[in-house]
């Protein structure tokens, strides 16, 4: 046997423990020995064990009690046990087998019998472990199929990495699943990226249209002698309404607490001020900061005033 088994020896007699451990080690297995049933159960619960060599006659907790405890514990139930009993105590061996022990060994065993029994037991354990492992991986594959069925093609969510390493039909199936999911996932990712790019492009076009309105509106303002601050206000309002309508249509309207009102206020004031200057420089004859409607029609008078005074700070209709 090439594989190294992990064997636990449970015997209250030190001489017998040493003999069993040395015999198991001589077969190439790893061995751990304990002196009581309680210690044995404790060790099995904390460490992986492939087989147990269990003495029957022990003080406090005997071999039968250990077997009962093992069979009632789902974590220990499948660990195979060989009971060590005297040749003249076949009744104990029979009882132990009825309680779930796999085999029995007389205390005065010879090397050939010991090797045959221990190695056969370990082979059976490994076959069973492989079957249990296979079933677990089939269950994982079925779960991956369920995940794919609900439309999640992210390969990292499928958990097929370990199964894909297998060199059998199950491994082939897992690789087919993983490859198909990877392709669909990549295609979806590219599609999502294209949609984002298109949305961004559309947003830029809308923004361009809105800002493009500034120039004709400036001309209209100078022709109609409408006031630039008012025009700036309406342009900004229109942009704002567009943004709000977009977010309502997308269902991404932020909660009032999440909106950075200070930022928006500063942006609105600076934006209005900027647009005001733009209109002013384009029209060349409209005062810079007059919100007063009745004075908007006095452009000619203001132009004259500008020419006489270097930089008027306020329109002549107002007194500070």
């Amino acid at each position: 046997m090439s594989r190294k088994g992990r064997i636990l020896v449970v015997d209250d007699t030190r001489t017998m423990r040493l003999k069993l451990a040395a015999a198991a080690t001589a077969l190439g297995h790893q061995c751990h020995s304990v002196g009581s049933g309680g210690e044995g159960l404790e060790y099995m619960r904390a460490n992986p064990v492939d087989a147990v060599l269990l003495d029957v006659v022990m003080p406090e907790m005997d071999g039968f009690d250990v077997l009962r405890a093992m069979k009632s514990d789902p974590a220990l139930r499948d660990i195979p046990v060989i009971v060590i009993s005297s040749l003249d105590d076949t009744g104990s061996a029979v009882k132990a087998i009825e309680l779930g022990a796999e085999d029995f060994l007389p205390k005065s065993f010879d090397a050939v019998i010991f090797r045959a029994r221990v190695n056969t037991l370990l082979e059976k354990k490994y076959v069973r472990d492989a079957e249990v492992d296979y079933l677990k991986q089939v269950q994982k594959l079925a779960r991956a199929a369920q995940i794919l069925k609900i439309g999640n093609y992210n390969p990292s969510k499928l958990g097929l990495g370990e199964i894909s390493q297998r060199h059998d039909a199950l491994g082939d199936l897992a690789r087919v699943f993983a490859d198909a999911a990877q392709k669909v996932y990549e295609r979806e990712r590219r599609l999502r990226q294209s949609i984002k790019t298109l949305r961004g492009g559309f947003g830029l076009i809308v923004l361009g249209i809105i800002w493009g309105l500034v120039a004709p509106l400036s001309r209209m303002a100078s022709g109609l002698e409408a006031h630039p601050f008012g025009m700036a206000f309406w342009v900004s309002l229109l942009s704002g309404v567009c943004c709000i309508a977009w977010s309502v249509a997308k269902g991404t309207v932020p909660k009032p607490r999440e909106i950075p009102w200070g930022y928006f206020l500063a942006y609105a004031l600076l934006g209005a001020r900027g647009e005001h200057h733009l209109h002013h420089h384009r029209s060349g004859r409209i005062p810079r900061l007059c919100v007063c409607g009745p004075h908007a029609g006095r452009a000619a008078e203001l132009v004259a005033l500008r020419r006489s005074v270097a930089r008027p700070r306020w329109c002549p209709g107002h007194t500070l």
Binding site: K19, A22, A23, T25, D110, A111
Partner: peptide
């Protein structure tokens, strides 16, 4: 026989 069982050590 015991020596054989324990690997001859």
């Amino acid at each position: 026989r015991m020596k054989e069982v324990i690997g001859g050590d």
